Simulated scan of single mutants.
Amino acid sequence: MTICAYATFADFDTDDEREPMLAAWREAGIEGRVERWDDATVDWSAYDAVVVRSVWDYILKREEFLAWARGVQSVTRLLNPYAVLESNTDKTYLRDLGVPIVPTHWSSLELPDWPEYVVKPSVSAGARDTTRTADRAEAARLAAELEATGRTPMVQPYLDMVESEGETSLLYFNGRLSHAVRRSAMLAAGATEADNARARLRTPAPDQVELAEKVLTAIPHVLLYARIDLVRLSDGRPAVIEAELTEPYLFLNYEPKAAARFATALRELL
């Protein structure tokens, strides 16, 4: 029996994809055991592979998380691999993808003249420390505050298209498209946490699939899982918001075959 660790964090009961995932692993002949990534008592070498999943507190201690990932990879298979996690946990990786991304200004100086701004740190998740403002001076101040604490700011235009078109997330397992969902705009006026968690299946357009697969081609590593988040710019072209390769929510509960596809991909890589 192949045994894999399902790496999570202290508040693992918030992960509603854990049980469907582990059930699919069992069907594929893989025993999955839930382990906290920061539990120093775990013998990671006892596993055939460690699958990084709901490690949703890594943004509070990124260096510790990366040290853990480096150590795990030295004793067993880590999926996704360390080099991917190191790059992907800081959104400055977007500058190197070589594909269209949401326009981004990486400092507090000489901000472009946009109707509205979104300001966030390059190491963040789930809109943490993210602010939307129409005041350019306020946007510059917020970006400067991030710089003062040693963080890299990301200043982007707020895109109205996300409220009508939504964000499109394409889910890939071992390089194959499993499913895609339309996600609500997290910073829309009046949006609630429940709204942000809501999604629905979507058939991605050919230009969205083409862009997502260009992103995957640009990453020189085997990926067990990838979530490519896209939005349309004002001229209708798709652009990358993020390539989620560390601990993305996979929307398994929206596509009945998704968990089995993930398990098949894991089996293939083992």
Rank of each mutant, 00 (worst) to 15 (best):
Y6H: 10
T8K: 09
F12H: 14
T14G: 12
D15G: 07
D16G: 01
D16P: 01
E17Y: 05
M21T: 15
M21P: 02
M21F: 10
A24Y: 09
W25P: 08
E27V: 12
E27W: 00
E27P: 02
A28K: 09
I30F: 05
E31P: 04
R33N: 01
V34P: 03
E35Y: 03
A40E: 13
V51Y: 01
R53H: 05
S54I: 03
E64K: 13
G71D: 04
L78V: 05
L78S: 06
P81R: 09
N88G: 15
D90W: 01
R95Q: 15
R95S: 10
V99N: 06
I101R: 08
V102W: 05
T104F: 07
S108Q: 02
E110Q: 13
P115I: 08
E116L: 02
V119I: 13
P121K: 10
P121D: 02
V123M: 07
S124L: 03
A127Q: 11
R128A: 13
R136I: 06
A139F: 05
R141M: 12
A143V: 11
A144Q: 12
E145R: 14
L146W: 02
L146T: 04
E147D: 01
T152E: 01
Q156Y: 03
P157R: 07
L159N: 02
L159A: 03
D160M: 06
E163R: 15
S164Y: 03
E165L: 06
G166L: 11
R176M: 05
A180R: 10
A180E: 03
M186P: 15
M186K: 13
T192G: 02
N196A: 13
T203W: 00
P204M: 09
E210G: 05
E213H: 06
V215E: 01
A218D: 08
P220H: 07
Y225T: 14
S234Q: 14
E244H: 10
E247S: 12
P248N: 11
N253Q: 15
A260M: 06
F262S: 00
A265F: 09
